[in-house]
């Protein structure tokens, strides 16, 4: 049986893929964070890194860990002490990787885009 192409899709020039627009502003602030997750080998990892930008929908960060797309990650962001009057508080967010951009050079980190799940919590 031959596979028929979808005429609607053809006519629309696949513009649908271009309509994914951000709902929230991204904050381009480098924030220190600890990222935890599982490598494809099943081994757990924990890595300190900088988040390049973040919004309530997701974040873009650098990671050494060789993870793949759709890996579940936990991000722990230390809230600046200026905001918490010295009290140590962390913002914990969970999400899944949606895009991995391999590092161009060996000593550079891979760039990882993470989409957050709905849950987040503050940890003392």
């Amino acid at each position: 049986m031959t596979k028929k192409s979808n005429p609607k899709k053809e006519n629309s020039n696949n513009y649908d893929i271009l309509l994914n627009r951000r709902k929230e502003w991204r904050l381009d602030i480098p924030i220190s964070a600890t990222v935890k997750g599982k490598l494809p080998t099943g081994k757990n990892f924990s890595e300190k890194t900088k988040i390049n930008n973040i919004s309530s929908g997701g974040a873009y960060l650098g990671l050494d860990a060789g993870i793949t797309v759709d890996t579940k990650l936990m991000l722990f962001i230390e809230i600046p002490s200026k905001l918490t009057d010295g009290k140590k508080t962390k913002l914990s967010l969970s999400g899944h990787t949606v895009r991995i951009e391999k590092a161009e050079k060996k000593d550079k980190k891979n760039n990882v885009a993470v989409r957050f799940d709905k849950e987040y919590k503050f940890l003392d």
Partner: peptide
Amino acid sequence: SRLQLALYAINSAL
């Protein structure tokens, strides 16, 4: 989004 507000607050503290 309350999370976005929290991020704004973190931004302002940085």
